[in-house]
């Protein structure tokens, strides 16, 4: 049997974007969110569990800086009903503008033709692996008119993964400068969002914003493919950012 027939027989495997609030962990690990604990001591305890300082206690309230979360899972109770852990949001609409502000999307004309150049600025491989899935049958980025392009000269969006290592800073800036205007930068993953566990440090910057102006941040370690799809749809104005999800 030839490959063409094999392809046809496999049928359509493309899935709709999950809209609701209960995406299963097989598709998205979710993110911790602001939680009211039983006592101020409990909030301080849970903040101490976080290795990246993403959880901040104010009295009994423990708020979350989602860009800093590296999915160590230490604040998540192993049994969902158990008390003491941080609550988690279970959706895929992670993307937000810089400093929590509004990102200005590209012109509406980009909604059906958006070209993305991916730059690996020190990624561990998992964000890139999730990006590779975007062109797979399940996510099928092409259906939205979004294409991954090998050249920055034809790119509208620079998608940065990794904390920006000192030795990748130059090539990253060169790629940004080579892009025509108008252009947008999307920082994908905890490392690109805020340095993750690697930066800022001796050989790493504290994320993509230290090298190029960032328009949209997608937290997560790694963010699931649907969160990246949502961000790319938002950057061309085809989807609103979902402010309700970003309460942290």
């Amino acid at each position: 049997m030839n490959w063409f027939v094999r392809g046809l027989l496999a049928g359509i495997r493309t899935e709709a974007e999950p809209g609701g609030k209960d995406t299963p962990p097989s598709i998205s690990p979710g993110l911790p969110r602001t939680t009211l604990h039983a006592s101020p001591e409990a909030a301080i305890d849970i903040a101490a569990v976080c290795p990246t300082g993403a959880i901040v206690a104010h009295d009994a309230l423990a708020s979350v800086v989602q860009d800093l979360c590296v999915h160590c899972m230490r604040c998540k109770p192993s049994d969902p009903g158990a008390a003491g852990g941080q609550e988690w949001r279970h959706d895929v609409r992670f993307a937000h503008g810089p400093e929590g502000g509004e990102a200005e999307p590209l012109d509406r004309r980009f909604t059906r033709s958006l070209h993305v150049r991916i730059v690996d600025a020190g990624d561990c491989g998992s964000c890139l692996n999730e990006l590779a899935q975007l062109n797979g049958p399940s996510y099928n980025l092409h259906r939205f008119g979004i294409f991954i392009t090998p050249t920055p000269r034809q790119a509208d969006v620079l998608l940065v993964v990794g904390p920006v290592t000192r030795q990748m800073r130059g090539p990253l800036k060169a790629a940004y400068d080579a892009m025509p205007d108008p252009k947008r930068v999307v920082a994908v993953g905890a490392c690109a969002a805020g340095g993750g566990i690697f930066g800022p440090s001796l050989m790493c910057a504290g994320g993509a914003a230290d090298a190029v102006p960032v328009d949209l941040v997608v937290p997560g370690c790694p963010p699931p493919p649907f969160a990246i799809v949502h961000a790319l749809r938002a950057v061309c104005g085809a989807r609103p950012l979902d402010p309700s999800g970003n309460l942290g």
Binding site: P29, M73, P137, C221
Partner: peptide, 22 residues
């Protein structure tokens, strides 16, 4: 790619993280 995605989902369903972090 589809097989890989199914395996990632199996990993995510059992460990709550697709790449077994944590």
């Amino acid at each position: 790619l589809w097989l890989e995605e199914q395996l990632l989902r199996i990993c995510g369903a059992v460990a709550e993280h697709r790449y077994f972090f944590g």
